[in-house]
Computed example of a mutant assay.
Amino acid sequence: MANSTMLTEFLLMGFAEGWKLRFLYSMLFVFMYLATLLGNLLIVTVTTADQNLHTPMYFFLRNLSILDMCYISVTVPTACVNSLTGHRAISVAGCATQIFLVIFCAFVAILFLMVMAWDRCVAICQPLHYSTIINLQLCVHLTLASLLSGLVYAGVHTGDMFVLNFCGSNIVPQFFCDIPSLLMLSCSDTSSNEHFLLISAVLVCGGRFSFIAMSYVRIFSTVLRFPTQEQGKAFSTCVPHILVLTVFLSSISYVYLRPSVTSEGTQDIGPSVFYTIVPPFLNSIIYSLRNKQVKDAVRKVILRRVYSGTK
């Protein structure tokens, strides 16, 4: 890496130009960060403590919660500190690490969401065969396959990025290091990188979204045959998931599929927030505050602790 770049560090942009706006945005993102950590820690704790939630669905939900905490921790704490203190520098190695972790977490999160949609599809459309199709061993294998493929995918994209030369401006027009922003700064020919990024993004985002969409189409077509009361419960659960997934994938597609142009300003910060901060935050709300089984499990855990404490 040292031989492939003439720069030793990059300078990240803040959330805004003025101090008041930077402080406001930083406090907002700190609140979302802490809420995300709290919600996902609650999910991990409850799904581990309650034996009734030791099912494939909550196995993947627990893994998604852990991943979401890691995902939002890669960008938000550093960005808020940088924005508040004015210390914008990040080393080349730090920048590469951030790119690797962002891509890894986003890729694996999409795979987890895809597997969770398939799990719900089997549970609703083939309930009699659910236990024979989906079991703990399969869940572990799917999780390991997702993590390993994420490592490979992130490693390939990060390595492909840092064989380029950076010999001009070192100001990254983003609050964290990402590939589209760094492509603008490279003085090498980036056409092959852009084509590779385009193809892989279309395959990952488009392919996964198509699979998830087909799963939910099957779910909805089955749910429409249920009694009206059960239909309402199913739709109230599935629709928020679809909305979060749509925001997640559409913002990623906008950032990564848009042609790289040399521009200054903060036009990419908004869409980047919608795929790095908003999905983990909304997932923690949807799967904790809006999930009846999780809320019931929380009450059981609290009552159990209170009862044991009064003895």
Results as ranks from 00 to 15, higher is better:
F10V: 03
M184G: 11
F281Y: 07
I252A: 13
C121S: 03
A109W: 05
I124L: 14
V30D: 09
F29P: 05
L128M: 14
V306R: 05
G168W: 04
E194Y: 01
Y275G: 08
I99R: 05
L53A: 10
L243G: 11
R290N: 13
Y307A: 14
A109V: 12
G94F: 03
Y287H: 09
S181L: 01
C167D: 13
M13A: 13
P56W: 04
R225C: 11
S250D: 10
P173T: 11
E230C: 11
G232R: 12
A117S: 15
L203G: 08
C70T: 14
C80W: 05
E17M: 08
Q267R: 00
I277K: 07
G14H: 10
Y307I: 15
T45S: 15
T55F: 04
L111Y: 10
L128N: 12
L38Y: 09
I277A: 08
C177H: 11
F15G: 02
G94H: 09
T97W: 05
V294S: 03
I302G: 10
C80E: 00
P180A: 13
T85I: 09
S284H: 08
D119G: 09
V163H: 14
W19H: 14
L164R: 12
H54Y: 01
A117T: 13
F176P: 02
N193C: 12
L21Y: 15
T5L: 11
H157T: 04
Y287P: 07
S263N: 06
T266M: 01
V44G: 02
T36Q: 09
N193E: 11
D296G: 15
L203Q: 13
F104Q: 06
P77R: 04
S236G: 03
P279E: 11
M69C: 14
V217T: 01
F235P: 04
F23T: 05
I219F: 03
G14Y: 05
D68G: 12
M13S: 07
F175R: 06
T190W: 04
I103T: 02
Q51T: 13
V202D: 08
V30C: 08
N193V: 02
C70R: 00
R218D: 05
